[in-house]
Design a protein around this nucleic acid. Structure first.
Lengths: 265, 265
DNA sequence: GGCGTTCCGTTCGCTGGCGTACATAACGCG
DNA sequence: CGCGTTATGTACGCCAGCGAACGGAACGCC
């Protein structure tokens, strides 16, 4: 069993100046996020802000007729729950864990106080929000104009960038609900990519074989989002590897205690 | 010729406490915004933040292949240029005047300073940004799941809410570029609405005859956006009518001096 | 190692919106 | 008032993605 990843694996936390980070550290609670966990529901008051390290969270909008689509994804490069400092404290969207893993969370109130200090955290969060807005805009435009295959490529690449390996644990059904399309559509699109030798997959696992190949198929949207993140959050990549955070191994909380899997230690 | 509308006609400016508003007022410059004026181009440094009063601005994303779609619209309820305080100071989108009219603008630097004071303006702007995010998310989802007719209804209603009258000065071609669809598609959709007696139009003018009727056709997205604005910016509607701002009639600047129309007084 | 469940593949007809091409009609300028 | 310009109407074939339905295959559990 691997140990819990350090908070520094979240790029935003890692980008904080040491002083600010240390102030926050005692309040960071390690959490395990399991596939399907709902961090917050549409319209629900946010209790925590989440900083994924190895997990990936999907911000979703679910329509009245039940169909849904992803508005944006959040992984180690970001944070879930920005509306907690933007105002209103809720959103009409839902946050669901798309790839199981770990992360940290901090209570809403503490985060709000930290934000109000108007120091590094505030700037960081605002810039991150700006980057998130770009991602949403691009999703809107991409939904309108690009083919399913292109969108699948975009989604795969964005997800891959948040993963440690090149294998996604992910059913086609799930991918379909992310993209807001039919499952059969994903089967077909993924089939094309597999035939082209770019990916291979089996029951619930998608492996990217040829990243460059995917990049050559993807629409511009991927690059726009990546570029914008790099521009807005350049510092985020710098402090990365040279900090060894070693807090007393925190207890791991589970986001939404799922009955069954409780008795494992 | 009507006189320039007062800054209070912009809901955000009107929602500011008197003290803050007065501090800003001397720096507010009245501008005329004409159809097609570009307030800022993709990637361009923002010189001003704009507060429309009677004009409507469309935030657009233009794809490499030339097609485009609206990400969000901004009228008297909002402001153009949020990235100026979010960070980065540019966006990958473009802001174009969609309905000619008036507004006010303030220099980037002044606005940034005001924001940093962390008083009412900051809170207001953050909440507005949150509302804008909702609009963008909803656009993304709507693009994916709803029919052109529904989207047209949504767009008409959102635009109508920003207009003083029930007539939009707008060609079908322009509407098409907003929605990111073909012009012919708009002709067809608008035709249906006209046959249903909900709207009527002639060459560049669309008149809404039956607002309730449109609301019965529209998808949920319209209500979600409206509700979210009302929730996040309730104060905005309160100070509305009871302030009579009377600055010395400001000189009207033109956003992007369009050659031809210059010689009018 | 069998069995049930979950996931994936494939098919068929359908339709909404696309691309193209052209006709007609309204406006506005001289 | 006529003429050019610009906006709108219509038509045709096309295709991506939808909806529904079903068969088969992989995995995981007992």
């Amino acid at each position: 069993m691997r140990s819990t990843p350090s908070p520094n694996q979240n790029h935003l936390l890692a980008a904080l100046p040491t002083a600010e980070f240390e102030r926050l550290a005692p309040h960071l609670e390690a959490v395990e996020m399991r596939l399907g966990d709902v961090l917050y529901e549409s319209g629900e008051q946010l209790q925590y802000m989440y900083f994924p390290t190895t997990a990936i969270v999907s911000l979703h909008y679910v329509m009245e007729n039940g169909s849904s689509s992803e508005i944006a994804g959040v992984g180690k490069e970001g944070a879930v729950g920005i509306s907690l400092f933007m105002g209103g404290n809720t959103t009409p969207s839902r946050a669901v864990v798309q790839t199981g893993g770990h992360g940290y969370r901090i209570r809403t109130q503490l985060m709000q106080e930290e934000f109000k200090r108007a120091e590094a955290m505030q700037l960081l969060m605002l810039r991150y929000t700006q980057a998130l807005i770009t991602q949403m805009s691009q999703t809107a435009a991409c939904n309108r104009h690009h083919s399913l295959v292109q969108q699948l490529c975009r989604w795969l690449l964005l997800t891959l960038d948040r993963m440690p390996s090149n294998e996604l644990v992910m059913t086609q059904e799930l991918v379909a609900s992310m993209l807001g399309v039919r499952r059969e559509g994903v089967t077909e699109a993924a089939g094309k990519l597999q035939q082209a030798g770019l990916i291979s997959y089996r029951r619930g696992h998608i492996t990217v074989l040829d990243r460059k190949g995917l990049e050559s198929q993807v629409c511009e949207c991927y690059a726009v989002v990546k570029t914008e993140f790099a521009r807005l959050l350049p510092d985020v990549l710098q402090r990365q590897n040279f900090i060894a955070y070693s807090a007393p191994a925190p207890r791991v909380a589970v986001v939404r205690p799922i009955d069954q899997a409780k008795g494992r230690k």
